[in-house]
Design a protein around this nucleic acid. Sequence first.
DNA 1: TTTTATCTTGCAAGCGTTTGCAAAATTGGC
DNA 2: GCCAATTTTGCAAACGCTTGCAAGATAAAA
Lengths: 347, 347
Amino acid sequence: MTIQNNNRKKSHNSVTIVDVARAAGVSYSTVSRVLSGFEFVNDDTRKKVLQAAEAMGYVVNLQARSLAGGRSNIIGLLAPAINNGYISEIVRGIDEELARSDYDLMLYTTHRYAGKEAFYVKTIVNGLVDGLILLAPLIPANYMQALPSHDFPLVLIDQANSGPNTTTVDATNWQGAYEATQYLLGLGHRRVGFITGYMEISSSTERLDGYRAALHHNRIPIDETLIVTGDYQSLGGFQGTERLLALPQPPTAIFASNDRSAIGAMEAIRAHGLHIPQDVSVIGFDDIPEASLVYPKLTTVRQPLVQFGQVAVRLLLEKIDAPEKEARRVTLATQLVIRDSCAPLTG
Amino acid sequence: MTIQNNNRKKSHNSVTIVDVARAAGVSYSTVSRVLSGFEFVNDDTRKKVLQAAEAMGYVVNLQARSLAGGRSNIIGLLAPAINNGYISEIVRGIDEELARSDYDLMLYTTHRYAGKEAFYVKTIVNGLVDGLILLAPLIPANYMQALPSHDFPLVLIDQANSGPNTTTVDATNWQGAYEATQYLLGLGHRRVGFITGYMEISSSTERLDGYRAALHHNRIPIDETLIVTGDYQSLGGFQGTERLLALPQPPTAIFASNDRSAIGAMEAIRAHGLHIPQDVSVIGFDDIPEASLVYPKLTTVRQPLVQFGQVAVRLLLEKIDAPEKEARRVTLATQLVIRDSCAPLTG
DNA sequence: TTTTATCTTGCAAGCGTTTGCAAAATTGGC
DNA sequence: GCCAATTTTGCAAACGCTTGCAAGATAAAA
């Protein structure tokens, strides 16, 4: 039984369209029309209104606008967290692209909502935002079922497990993993350890498949003991690597499903007194900013992270403008970035 | 002259308090009172309403609530960007603390608003958010003057140049810089280069002062050529270091005003074919996650970044509950974190 | 000049809440 | 069992905006 706090006076002495209307000598609906860009307004009237609004320092009240059925000009972003390079690069892309439109960003971190996704999505979406970006959600369905309508503007980033009719942006995970593995094989490695990502997420399985395919095409039998389960986290990479190094025949190269786990792997390797890349080569995936900060600089498969965000926003705005339009899936190309963490197999 | 897009039907088939009221057999104001925790409601009524709301999947419409004078339960964060460890650590703290309350976060990156801060702050604040956090703003006044009332809930992080009556959280910049310099001097260094931060920001001047004070207390004359201007960015650190190394008598240690510029400094040093810490010691400030990723691991002055965010939120919520209360300034302690980038002066 | 099509504008209703005010119901004291 | 004090409820008026409808202006056509 909470105590109500009543001291919130309506101190918004703010200028409303009514004030502007009075100053400009027109009706408030005309002001509304000018301000929301309606076509059929006399140019003189428009000018008058705009001037008055400017002079009085009018700013729109987004709440009211969106309550009345207009747009809130806010889009929601649901991300697992924001404390890692992967996500913050994507968010940067989102932010940059949003800056070109006049939308603002509402940020939700999903760790808060474990188990109550549906409820929170409802709250979010209940008028507040015009569209929603889901960034690498574990189980997209949890969120999607809470959406108010089937064609509520929604874009998924980096998650392909979401049914056919969903707008998605992701990268060529399979291809990227294939090339990375190929690269390692080209350096002479035959025992290539693989640390998986979090296997609920589609990118993880795609990367694993790419790895398998590359071995297969090179007629290298797949040794299942070389495939260890990770979780896209640094610690997972560390632990997975420890298991790999404890093998009777440890790998000479390790392909980690993302850079974070690759960084964990590097630590584990060093903890074993081994050198990178002389003793063990390491390759990652993502090319987060940290990848070129670690020593040795990490060879990795670049995903165009910033572009993920930009494209997602563009797709979302499209969808907002035309909700009935067909969903699209945009797959961006990955690219092998060779730095210092891989060496040819010697001996 | 934009084309109006009218296809946004009110498809919010959402449950409103009126629906809940009907189902529970009470008036909608009673529902409102139950839902916003008003005291004087009969327990049975309360139960009935809560049940009905639950059963119907009611979720509040934040727009309407806040328009009608309630709280939006959203706080705004104005940050320069989000693509660096410094900020994302703080945001993490904010997010964590927010998760414990039931507030949500609206994120604004200020780079979008260059020169129009006042206008955007007005928009933001115009009903949308219950309070505002300003993260390391260059010129706080630009934002503050746009606030609707003098005691609109506002907290500044890491910016002390904001007049006396502002709630602020920052760290012991002077002290931290003093200790870092002291540490370098203790290692025998006498020529300690200093790369400043962006000098518009109070932390920059405080750190510079701390550096000066430490030299002074050790009776080491201050060589102004050893103090070069940076901007808290990696590139600034790089360029500053190049100037330092080009000096007739280059420094044997470099104190960069933050980790980003320290990382830039390290690159410059390596680019000159010198080794860290054997040839030049480097010390940073902040202890962002990247600091322990680089090679060698960066010795630095830790700021409790996550805590910045947490404390800021707590102060802000306090302020929201009691806007008339006195402003406070909370200064958190820094701490020297010794890693591998500094060595005793040899020869 | 009249008629008709096309622009412009204003009015009023409504979006989903909160909250002041007053009426109704309950409680307690005699 | 009655009256006053207190608790509980409902009504109605905002909050600031959008938008369908209809009327008034204006331009084009006849």
